[in-house]
Design a protein around this nucleic acid. Structure first.
Length: 132
RNA sequence: GCAGAGGGCUGGAUGGCCGCGGGGGCCGCAAGGUUCGCGAGGAAAGUCCGGACUCCACAAGGCAACGGUGCCGGGUAACGCCCGGCCGGGGAAACCCGAGGGAAAGCGCCACAGAGAACAAACCGCCUCCGCUUGCGGGGGCAAGGGUGAAAAGGUGGGGUAAGAGCCCACCGCGCCGCUGGUAACAGGGGCGGCAUGGCAAGCCCCACCGGGAGCAAUGCCGAAUAGGGACCUCGCGCGGGAUUGAUCCUUCGGGAUAUCGCCGCAGGGACGCUUUGGCCCAGAGGUCCGGGUUGGCAGCUAGAGGGGGCGUGGUAACGCGCUCUCAAGAAGAAUGGUCAUCCAGAGGGGGCAACCCCUUGGACAGAAUCCGGCUUAUAGGCCCUCUGCGCGU
Protein backbone atom coordinates (compact mmCIF):
# COMPACT_ATOMS: atom_id res chain seq x y z
CA UNK A 1 0.00 0.00 0.00
CA UNK A 2 1.37 3.38 -0.90
CA UNK A 3 1.58 6.00 1.76
CA UNK A 4 -0.11 8.88 0.01
CA UNK A 5 -3.49 7.29 -0.37
CA UNK A 6 -3.42 5.81 3.14
CA UNK A 7 -3.20 9.26 4.66
CA UNK A 8 -6.37 10.23 2.85
CA UNK A 9 -5.37 13.86 2.51
CA UNK A 10 -7.05 14.34 -0.83
CA UNK A 11 -9.89 16.83 -0.62
CA UNK A 12 -13.38 15.43 -0.23
CA UNK A 13 -16.29 16.43 -2.41
CA UNK A 14 -15.81 20.10 -1.74
CA UNK A 15 -15.99 20.57 -5.48
CA UNK A 16 -19.72 21.02 -5.21
CA UNK A 17 -19.16 24.76 -5.05
CA UNK A 18 -17.14 24.71 -8.31
CA UNK A 19 -18.94 25.67 -11.49
CA UNK A 20 -17.73 25.58 -15.07
CA UNK A 21 -17.65 28.68 -17.22
CA UNK A 22 -19.65 28.15 -20.39
CA UNK A 23 -20.26 31.50 -22.02
CA UNK A 24 -17.83 33.21 -24.27
CA UNK A 25 -18.60 36.57 -22.67
CA UNK A 26 -17.49 35.27 -19.25
CA UNK A 27 -14.16 34.24 -20.75
CA UNK A 28 -13.70 37.60 -22.39
CA UNK A 29 -14.53 39.40 -19.14
CA UNK A 30 -11.97 37.33 -17.26
CA UNK A 31 -9.36 38.05 -19.92
CA UNK A 32 -9.88 41.79 -19.43
CA UNK A 33 -9.35 41.47 -15.68
CA UNK A 34 -6.11 40.59 -13.92
CA UNK A 35 -3.81 37.75 -14.92
CA UNK A 36 -0.72 35.95 -13.71
CA UNK A 37 1.55 33.66 -15.70
CA UNK A 38 3.57 30.74 -14.45
CA UNK A 39 5.82 28.30 -16.23
CA UNK A 40 3.05 25.79 -16.91
CA UNK A 41 -0.04 27.96 -17.23
CA UNK A 42 -1.58 31.39 -17.43
CA UNK A 43 -4.23 32.22 -14.83
CA UNK A 44 -6.84 34.90 -15.33
CA UNK A 45 -9.11 35.96 -12.47
CA UNK A 46 -12.04 38.29 -12.05
CA UNK A 47 -14.18 39.15 -9.05
CA UNK A 48 -17.78 39.16 -10.13
CA UNK A 49 -19.79 42.34 -9.59
CA UNK A 50 -22.65 42.57 -7.13
CA UNK A 51 -25.87 41.01 -8.37
CA UNK A 52 -24.32 39.01 -11.16
CA UNK A 53 -26.13 35.87 -12.02
CA UNK A 54 -24.41 33.00 -10.18
CA UNK A 55 -24.67 32.87 -6.45
CA UNK A 56 -22.00 35.01 -4.78
CA UNK A 57 -20.46 32.06 -2.90
CA UNK A 58 -19.79 30.10 -6.11
CA UNK A 59 -16.30 29.72 -7.56
CA UNK A 60 -16.35 29.41 -11.32
CA UNK A 61 -13.53 28.12 -13.46
CA UNK A 62 -12.89 27.75 -17.18
CA UNK A 63 -10.13 26.16 -19.21
CA UNK A 64 -8.58 27.23 -22.48
CA UNK A 65 -6.13 25.33 -24.64
CA UNK A 66 -5.65 26.85 -28.05
CA UNK A 67 -4.19 25.18 -31.13
CA UNK A 68 -0.82 26.45 -29.99
CA UNK A 69 -0.78 23.75 -27.31
CA UNK A 70 -0.75 21.01 -29.95
CA UNK A 71 -3.06 18.54 -31.61
CA UNK A 72 -6.33 17.36 -30.13
CA UNK A 73 -4.68 14.77 -27.91
CA UNK A 74 -2.24 17.26 -26.46
CA UNK A 75 -4.97 19.84 -25.88
CA UNK A 76 -7.23 17.35 -24.13
CA UNK A 77 -4.39 16.11 -21.95
CA UNK A 78 -3.46 19.64 -20.92
CA UNK A 79 -7.08 20.49 -20.13
CA UNK A 80 -7.50 17.38 -18.01
CA UNK A 81 -4.46 18.13 -15.94
CA UNK A 82 -5.63 21.71 -15.47
CA UNK A 83 -9.06 20.45 -14.47
CA UNK A 84 -7.56 18.10 -11.94
CA UNK A 85 -5.35 20.80 -10.49
CA UNK A 86 -8.32 23.17 -10.26
CA UNK A 87 -10.38 20.50 -8.54
CA UNK A 88 -7.71 19.96 -5.90
CA UNK A 89 -6.61 23.55 -5.31
CA UNK A 90 -9.49 25.95 -5.93
CA UNK A 91 -11.87 24.81 -3.15
CA UNK A 92 -9.20 25.63 -0.57
CA UNK A 93 -7.24 28.45 -2.22
CA UNK A 94 -9.84 30.11 -4.43
CA UNK A 95 -12.15 32.86 -3.27
CA UNK A 96 -15.95 32.76 -3.52
CA UNK A 97 -17.45 35.13 -6.02
CA UNK A 98 -14.51 34.92 -8.39
CA UNK A 99 -14.14 33.59 -11.93
CA UNK A 100 -10.89 31.89 -12.87
CA UNK A 101 -9.64 30.91 -16.32
CA UNK A 102 -6.70 28.52 -16.65
CA UNK A 103 -4.84 28.62 -19.94
CA UNK A 104 -2.60 25.76 -21.01
CA UNK A 105 0.84 26.22 -22.48
CA UNK A 106 2.54 24.17 -25.16
CA UNK A 107 4.39 21.09 -23.84
CA UNK A 108 4.84 22.49 -20.30
CA UNK A 109 1.30 21.90 -19.06
CA UNK A 110 1.43 18.25 -20.05
CA UNK A 111 5.04 17.57 -19.04
CA UNK A 112 5.40 19.32 -15.69
CA UNK A 113 5.32 17.11 -12.59
CA UNK A 114 1.89 17.21 -11.02
CA UNK A 115 2.98 18.54 -7.63
CA UNK A 116 4.83 21.38 -9.31
CA UNK A 117 1.72 22.12 -11.33
CA UNK A 118 -0.28 22.42 -8.10
CA UNK A 119 2.36 24.72 -6.68
CA UNK A 120 2.12 26.91 -9.77
CA UNK A 121 -1.60 27.43 -9.30
CA UNK A 122 -1.26 28.17 -5.58
CA UNK A 123 1.45 30.72 -6.35
CA UNK A 124 -0.60 32.36 -9.10
CA UNK A 125 -3.68 32.61 -6.89
CA UNK A 126 -1.71 34.19 -4.08
CA UNK A 127 -0.33 36.81 -6.46
CA UNK A 128 -3.74 37.52 -7.96
CA UNK A 129 -5.50 37.92 -4.65
CA UNK A 130 -2.74 40.08 -3.22
CA UNK A 131 -2.66 42.27 -6.32
CA UNK A 132 -5.54 44.49 -5.30
C1' G B 1 20.03 -20.93 -41.20
C1' C B 2 20.60 -16.69 -44.78
C1' A B 3 18.35 -13.47 -48.54
C1' G B 4 13.68 -12.05 -50.41
C1' A B 5 8.07 -11.82 -51.48
C1' G B 6 2.89 -11.70 -49.82
C1' G B 7 -0.79 -11.52 -45.90
C1' G B 8 -2.84 -11.17 -40.93
C1' C B 9 -2.99 -9.87 -35.66
C1' U B 10 -1.55 -6.74 -31.68
C1' G B 11 -0.30 -1.97 -30.31
C1' G B 12 1.08 -2.13 -22.65
C1' A B 13 -1.06 -5.44 -18.02
C1' U B 14 -2.98 -5.70 -12.89
C1' G B 15 -4.42 -3.32 -8.46
C1' G B 16 -5.18 0.86 -4.68
C1' C B 17 -6.99 6.05 -3.69
C1' C B 18 -9.49 10.50 -5.66
C1' G B 19 -12.44 12.25 -9.86
C1' C B 20 -15.57 12.96 -14.74
C1' G B 21 -19.92 11.76 -18.55
C1' G B 22 -24.44 9.72 -19.27
C1' G B 23 -27.81 5.41 -17.80
C1' G B 24 -30.73 1.70 -14.42
C1' G B 25 -32.46 0.54 -9.28
C1' C B 26 -33.63 2.34 -4.27
C1' C B 27 -34.70 6.61 -0.73
C1' G B 28 -36.77 11.66 -0.98
C1' C B 29 -42.37 16.53 -2.12
C1' A B 30 -37.94 18.53 -4.10
C1' A B 31 -32.87 19.81 -3.95
C1' G B 32 -30.20 15.76 -3.61
C1' G B 33 -28.26 11.10 -1.54
C1' U B 34 -26.94 6.03 -2.27
C1' U B 35 -25.87 1.76 -5.10
C1' C B 36 -25.03 -1.18 -9.68
C1' G B 37 -22.96 -1.92 -14.19
C1' C B 38 -21.19 1.06 -18.99
C1' G B 39 -17.73 4.73 -21.21
C1' A B 40 -12.40 6.07 -27.78
C1' G B 41 -9.55 3.95 -32.56
C1' G B 42 -7.18 0.90 -36.23
C1' A B 43 -6.88 4.59 -38.14
C1' A B 44 -11.78 7.85 -33.92
C1' A B 45 -7.63 11.62 -38.61
C1' G B 46 -7.86 13.73 -43.90
C1' U B 47 -13.11 14.89 -45.41
C1' C B 48 -11.47 12.15 -51.08
C1' C B 49 -15.61 8.70 -53.06
C1' G B 50 -20.36 5.69 -52.15
C1' G B 51 -24.91 5.30 -49.32
C1' A B 52 -28.79 5.65 -45.18
C1' C B 53 -31.61 9.74 -43.11
C1' U B 54 -33.81 14.97 -43.43
C1' C B 55 -35.45 19.26 -46.02
C1' C B 56 -36.01 21.77 -50.84
C1' A B 57 -37.05 21.19 -56.12
C1' C B 58 -39.46 17.94 -59.62
C1' A B 59 -45.10 13.98 -64.15
C1' A B 60 -42.35 9.90 -66.65
C1' G B 61 -38.88 10.22 -70.25
C1' G B 62 -35.69 12.47 -73.97
C1' C B 63 -32.09 16.16 -75.62
C1' A B 64 -28.34 19.77 -74.44
C1' A B 65 -24.79 21.56 -70.90
C1' C B 66 -21.62 20.39 -66.75
C1' G B 67 -19.11 16.78 -63.60
C1' G B 68 -17.45 11.81 -63.00
C1' U B 69 -16.13 6.75 -64.47
C1' G B 70 -13.38 3.89 -68.45
C1' C B 71 -9.80 -3.99 -70.45
C1' C B 72 -13.51 -8.30 -69.14
C1' G B 73 -16.57 -11.05 -65.66
C1' G B 74 -18.36 -11.30 -60.73
C1' G B 75 -19.48 -9.30 -55.50
C1' U B 76 -22.29 -5.35 -53.07
C1' A B 77 -27.54 -1.19 -50.65
C1' A B 78 -23.94 1.48 -53.58
C1' C B 79 -19.04 2.93 -55.14
C1' G B 80 -13.94 5.66 -58.17
C1' C B 81 -14.15 -0.15 -53.42
C1' C B 82 -13.22 -5.60 -53.27
C1' C B 83 -12.40 -10.55 -55.75
C1' G B 84 -11.15 -13.50 -60.06
C1' G B 85 -9.33 -13.30 -65.00
C1' C B 86 -7.00 -10.96 -69.58
C1' C B 87 -3.23 -7.85 -71.88
C1' G B 88 1.45 -4.92 -71.46
C1' G B 89 6.01 -4.01 -68.54
C1' G B 90 9.75 -5.51 -64.51
C1' G B 91 12.12 -9.68 -61.75
C1' A B 92 16.09 -15.82 -61.56
C1' A B 93 11.52 -16.83 -58.75
C1' A B 94 7.74 -15.95 -55.04
C1' C B 95 5.62 -11.67 -56.78
C1' C B 96 5.16 -6.48 -58.12
C1' C B 97 3.60 -2.22 -61.31
C1' G B 98 -0.04 -0.13 -65.11
C1' A B 99 -5.76 6.92 -65.52
C1' G B 100 -5.63 -0.30 -69.39
C1' G B 101 -11.94 2.62 -74.35
C1' G B 102 -11.12 5.31 -79.29
C1' A B 103 -5.30 8.29 -82.92
C1' A B 104 -8.18 5.05 -90.98
C1' A B 105 -14.31 11.41 -87.19
C1' G B 106 -11.73 15.96 -86.82
C1' C B 107 -8.48 19.95 -84.73
C1' G B 108 -3.91 20.77 -82.18
C1' C B 109 1.16 19.76 -80.36
C1' C B 110 5.98 16.98 -80.98
C1' A B 111 11.17 21.23 -77.21
C1' C B 112 16.65 20.54 -78.08
C1' A B 113 19.50 18.15 -81.63
C1' G B 114 19.04 17.00 -86.65
C1' A B 115 19.23 17.55 -93.84
C1' G B 116 14.37 15.94 -92.56
C1' A B 117 9.21 15.32 -87.03
C1' A B 118 4.30 13.47 -91.24
C1' C B 119 0.42 13.86 -98.59
C1' A B 120 8.45 12.40 -95.95
C1' A B 121 13.38 14.22 -96.72
C1' A B 122 18.75 14.00 -98.66
C1' C B 123 23.79 16.43 -94.48
C1' C B 124 27.76 12.65 -94.84
C1' G B 125 27.23 8.76 -98.30
C1' C B 126 26.55 4.67 -102.54
C1' C B 127 26.19 4.10 -108.07
C1' U B 128 26.51 6.15 -112.92
C1' C B 129 27.31 9.78 -117.04
C1' C B 130 29.99 14.29 -118.76
C1' G B 131 34.20 17.72 -118.14
C1' C B 132 39.07 18.48 -116.77
C1' U B 133 44.39 20.40 -113.71
C1' U B 134 43.09 12.56 -110.75
C1' G B 135 40.01 14.60 -106.97
C1' C B 136 37.08 18.31 -107.75
C1' G B 137 32.76 20.56 -110.51
C1' G B 138 28.01 19.65 -112.97
C1' G B 139 23.69 16.30 -114.47
C1' G B 140 20.97 11.82 -113.21
C1' G B 141 19.62 7.40 -110.09
C1' C B 142 19.25 5.43 -104.80
C1' A B 143 17.82 5.39 -99.62
C1' A B 144 21.21 0.18 -97.79
C1' G B 145 25.15 2.33 -94.31
C1' G B 146 26.73 6.76 -91.04
C1' G B 147 25.20 10.83 -87.96
C1' U B 148 21.01 13.45 -84.72
C1' G B 149 17.04 12.27 -81.57
C1' A B 150 12.40 9.82 -76.82
C1' A B 151 10.79 8.68 -81.82
C1' A B 152 13.50 8.66 -88.72
C1' A B 153 7.91 5.52 -92.30
C1' G B 154 7.84 -2.12 -90.96
C1' G B 155 12.17 -5.96 -88.62
C1' U B 156 15.73 -10.24 -89.65
C1' G B 157 17.79 -13.31 -93.41
C1' G B 158 18.17 -14.44 -98.61
C1' G B 159 17.54 -13.30 -103.80
C1' G B 160 18.05 -9.23 -106.95
C1' U B 161 20.62 -4.65 -108.89
C1' A B 162 25.05 -0.05 -111.79
C1' A B 163 23.96 1.04 -106.68
C1' G B 164 19.59 0.16 -104.19
C1' A B 165 14.58 -0.40 -102.64
C1' G B 166 8.41 -5.20 -100.25
C1' C B 167 11.32 -4.84 -106.24
C1' C B 168 10.72 -10.51 -105.17
C1' C B 169 10.74 -14.74 -101.36
C1' A B 170 10.70 -17.03 -96.10
C1' C B 171 9.75 -16.04 -90.96
C1' C B 172 8.10 -12.23 -87.43
C1' G B 173 5.00 -7.83 -87.06
C1' C B 174 0.54 -5.21 -89.12
C1' G B 175 -4.46 -5.16 -91.57
C1' C B 176 -8.74 -7.93 -93.47
C1' C B 177 -11.65 -12.63 -93.70
C1' G B 178 -13.50 -16.80 -91.65
C1' C B 179 -12.36 -21.33 -87.87
C1' U B 180 -11.54 -23.40 -82.79
C1' G B 181 -11.60 -22.55 -77.29
C1' G B 182 -13.64 -19.06 -73.71
C1' U B 183 -19.91 -15.90 -70.68
C1' A B 184 -16.27 -12.08 -72.04
C1' A B 185 -11.64 -9.32 -72.23
C1' C B 186 -8.69 -12.45 -75.13
C1' A B 187 -5.83 -16.69 -76.83
C1' G B 188 -4.51 -20.36 -80.65
C1' G B 189 -3.82 -21.85 -85.38
C1' G B 190 -5.49 -21.01 -91.08
C1' G B 191 -6.10 -18.07 -95.59
C1' C B 192 -5.51 -13.45 -98.17
C1' G B 193 -3.01 -8.49 -98.72
C1' G B 194 3.33 -6.29 -100.17
C1' C B 195 2.42 -2.69 -96.11
C1' A B 196 -1.36 1.48 -96.26
C1' U B 197 -1.98 3.14 -90.13
C1' G B 198 4.70 7.46 -85.90
C1' G B 199 3.67 9.36 -80.71
C1' C B 200 0.56 12.36 -77.24
C1' A B 201 -6.53 11.46 -75.65
C1' A B 202 -2.93 13.33 -68.06
C1' G B 203 -4.39 19.32 -74.94
C1' C B 204 -9.33 19.69 -77.21
C1' C B 205 -12.37 15.87 -78.70
C1' C B 206 -15.45 11.15 -79.94
C1' C B 207 -17.98 6.78 -77.79
C1' A B 208 -20.37 4.03 -73.68
C1' C B 209 -22.25 4.22 -68.77
C1' C B 210 -23.53 7.06 -64.15
C1' G B 211 -25.15 11.64 -61.69
C1' G B 212 -31.31 16.91 -59.21
C1' G B 213 -29.55 20.42 -54.91
C1' A B 214 -28.17 21.14 -49.87
C1' G B 215 -26.66 19.05 -45.47
C1' C B 216 -27.48 16.79 -38.25
C1' A B 217 -25.19 24.15 -37.54
C1' A B 218 -30.16 18.87 -41.88
C1' U B 219 -34.95 18.90 -39.80
C1' G B 220 -39.23 18.91 -36.14
C1' C B 221 -41.27 20.64 -31.45
C1' C B 222 -41.46 23.86 -26.85
C1' G B 223 -40.52 28.75 -25.74
C1' A B 224 -39.49 32.90 -20.27
C1' A B 225 -37.92 38.06 -19.14
C1' U B 226 -37.40 42.57 -22.17
C1' A B 227 -38.34 45.40 -26.55
C1' G B 228 -41.22 45.86 -30.85
C1' G B 229 -45.95 44.32 -34.22
C1' G B 230 -51.37 43.27 -34.81
C1' A B 231 -56.61 42.65 -33.02
C1' C B 232 -60.31 43.62 -29.35
C1' C B 233 -62.23 45.93 -24.69
C1' U B 234 -62.39 49.97 -20.84
C1' C B 235 -61.15 54.95 -19.54
C1' G B 236 -59.24 59.31 -21.69
C1' C B 237 -58.94 61.85 -26.30
C1' G B 238 -58.14 71.22 -25.41
C1' C B 239 -59.90 75.02 -29.07
C1' G B 240 -60.00 76.81 -33.93
C1' G B 241 -58.88 76.61 -39.26
C1' G B 242 -58.55 74.83 -44.06
C1' A B 243 -59.70 71.85 -47.39
C1' U B 244 -57.96 67.17 -51.73
C1' U B 245 -52.88 71.07 -55.20
C1' G B 246 -53.03 64.49 -48.76
C1' A B 247 -55.35 59.56 -47.05
C1' U B 248 -60.42 57.94 -46.46
C1' C B 249 -65.78 57.90 -47.44
C1' C B 250 -70.25 59.34 -50.51
C1' U B 251 -71.63 60.65 -55.54
C1' U B 252 -76.73 61.80 -60.13
C1' C B 253 -69.22 62.47 -61.88
C1' G B 254 -70.97 68.66 -61.47
C1' G B 255 -69.37 67.97 -56.73
C1' G B 256 -69.89 66.89 -51.48
C1' A B 257 -68.60 65.04 -46.15
C1' U B 258 -64.74 66.13 -42.21
C1' A B 259 -66.05 61.21 -37.31
C1' U B 260 -60.83 59.10 -37.96
C1' C B 261 -55.34 59.49 -39.66
C1' G B 262 -52.37 63.47 -41.55
C1' C B 263 -51.63 69.24 -42.17
C1' C B 264 -51.65 74.59 -40.14
C1' G B 265 -52.36 78.14 -35.97
C1' C B 266 -53.14 78.94 -30.71
C1' A B 267 -53.12 76.74 -25.93
C1' G B 268 -50.85 72.29 -22.61
C1' G B 269 -46.60 69.20 -20.78
C1' G B 270 -41.03 67.97 -20.84
C1' A B 271 -35.55 68.72 -21.00
C1' C B 272 -31.73 72.53 -22.05
C1' G B 273 -29.36 75.68 -14.06
C1' C B 274 -33.24 80.17 -13.80
C1' U B 275 -36.23 84.27 -16.77
C1' U B 276 -37.59 86.09 -21.91
C1' U B 277 -37.31 84.80 -27.04
C1' G B 278 -36.32 80.91 -30.38
C1' G B 279 -35.87 76.05 -31.87
C1' C B 280 -36.48 70.64 -30.23
C1' C B 281 -39.36 66.62 -28.11
C1' C B 282 -44.33 64.54 -26.14
C1' A B 283 -49.93 63.98 -26.61
C1' G B 284 -52.42 58.53 -24.54
C1' A B 285 -52.98 54.88 -20.28
C1' G B 286 -54.48 50.02 -18.63
C1' G B 287 -56.10 44.96 -19.66
C1' U B 288 -56.88 40.41 -22.66
C1' C B 289 -55.57 37.62 -26.83
C1' C B 290 -52.77 36.43 -31.37
C1' G B 291 -48.69 35.68 -34.60
C1' G B 292 -43.34 36.29 -35.53
C1' G B 293 -38.94 35.63 -32.73
C1' U B 294 -33.30 35.94 -29.79
C1' U B 295 -30.47 33.37 -25.29
C1' G B 296 -32.14 28.59 -24.18
C1' G B 297 -34.56 23.55 -23.71
C1' C B 298 -36.32 18.82 -25.95
C1' A B 299 -36.33 15.51 -30.02
C1' G B 300 -33.17 13.88 -34.23
C1' C B 301 -29.15 10.49 -31.11
C1' U B 302 -27.44 5.97 -31.60
C1' A B 303 -30.61 -1.42 -32.47
C1' G B 304 -28.31 -0.87 -37.80
C1' A B 305 -27.07 -2.88 -45.09
C1' G B 306 -24.44 -3.28 -37.01
C1' G B 307 -19.64 -5.61 -34.63
C1' G B 308 -17.55 -10.32 -32.82
C1' G B 309 -17.62 -15.82 -32.09
C1' G B 310 -19.39 -20.87 -33.35
C1' C B 311 -21.75 -24.59 -36.57
C1' G B 312 -23.70 -25.89 -41.37
C1' U B 313 -23.93 -24.72 -46.56
C1' G B 314 -23.06 -22.48 -51.98
C1' G B 315 -18.77 -20.19 -54.42
C1' U B 316 -11.58 -20.58 -56.86
C1' A B 317 -12.42 -15.92 -54.25
C1' A B 318 -14.72 -11.26 -52.93
C1' C B 319 -19.17 -12.57 -50.84
C1' G B 320 -24.05 -14.90 -50.05
C1' C B 321 -27.69 -18.00 -47.24
C1' G B 322 -29.52 -20.61 -42.66
C1' C B 323 -29.26 -21.58 -37.31
C1' U B 324 -27.24 -20.01 -32.75
C1' C B 325 -24.52 -17.31 -28.82
C1' U B 326 -22.74 -12.69 -27.46
C1' C B 327 -21.61 -7.21 -27.38
C1' A B 328 -23.54 -2.05 -27.27
C1' A B 329 -19.92 5.74 -25.46
C1' G B 330 -23.58 9.39 -26.86
C1' A B 331 -20.95 14.77 -24.91
C1' A B 332 -22.30 19.98 -26.43
C1' G B 333 -16.46 25.50 -23.31
C1' A B 334 -17.63 19.18 -25.25
C1' A B 335 -16.86 12.99 -20.17
C1' U B 336 -13.54 8.61 -21.01
C1' G B 337 -8.96 11.57 -16.26
C1' G B 338 -5.16 12.45 -12.10
C1' U B 339 -1.84 10.00 -9.00
C1' C B 340 0.81 5.83 -6.73
C1' A B 341 2.70 0.76 -6.66
C1' U B 342 4.06 -3.86 -8.99
C1' C B 343 4.87 -6.27 -13.51
C1' C B 344 5.79 -6.78 -19.15
C1' A B 345 8.33 -5.26 -23.70
C1' G B 346 12.32 -1.56 -25.16
C1' A B 347 17.00 1.59 -24.39
C1' G B 348 21.58 2.81 -21.53
C1' G B 349 25.23 1.63 -17.63
C1' G B 350 27.65 -1.73 -14.01
C1' G B 351 28.96 -6.81 -12.03
C1' G B 352 29.65 -12.03 -13.44
C1' C B 353 33.12 -17.32 -17.55
C1' A B 354 27.78 -17.97 -18.08
C1' A B 355 22.60 -18.57 -16.73
C1' C B 356 21.52 -14.17 -14.38
C1' C B 357 21.47 -9.92 -10.90
C1' C B 358 21.42 -4.51 -9.69
C1' C B 359 20.58 0.73 -11.03
C1' U B 360 18.64 4.52 -14.30
C1' U B 361 15.38 5.72 -18.12
C1' G B 362 10.93 4.85 -20.48
C1' G B 363 5.67 3.50 -23.83
C1' A B 364 4.29 4.78 -31.78
C1' C B 365 0.53 7.47 -34.42
C1' A B 366 -3.21 9.62 -32.28
C1' G B 367 -9.27 11.52 -29.10
C1' A B 368 -15.80 9.80 -30.86
C1' A B 369 -19.44 14.53 -32.30
C1' U B 370 -25.86 11.74 -37.06
C1' C B 371 -24.68 6.73 -38.62
C1' C B 372 -22.67 3.00 -42.00
C1' G B 373 -19.29 0.87 -46.57
C1' G B 374 -14.58 2.19 -48.74
C1' C B 375 -10.07 4.89 -50.07
C1' U B 376 -5.86 7.74 -48.53
C1' U B 377 -2.41 9.38 -45.01
C1' A B 378 0.29 8.71 -39.83
C1' U B 379 2.24 4.71 -36.79
C1' A B 380 7.73 2.87 -31.70
C1' G B 381 7.77 -1.99 -30.76
C1' G B 382 6.05 -7.14 -30.67
C1' C B 383 3.82 -11.76 -32.61
C1' C B 384 1.99 -15.29 -36.32
C1' C B 385 1.06 -17.69 -41.18
C1' U B 386 2.12 -18.79 -46.39
C1' C B 387 5.43 -18.73 -50.51
C1' U B 388 10.37 -18.21 -53.58
C1' G B 389 15.74 -18.89 -54.09
C1' C B 390 20.33 -20.61 -51.95
C1' G B 391 22.89 -23.57 -48.19
C1' C B 392 22.91 -27.63 -44.58
C1' G B 393 20.85 -32.15 -42.40
C1' U B 394 17.62 -36.55 -42.83
Amino acid sequence: MDGNAAQGDTPPAVSVCLEVLKNRSDFLAAARARKQGTKAMMVQARKRREGENPAPEAIRVGFTCSKKVGNAVARNRAKRRLREVARLILPTHGKPGWDYVLIGRASETAARPFETLQGDLVYALRKLHADK
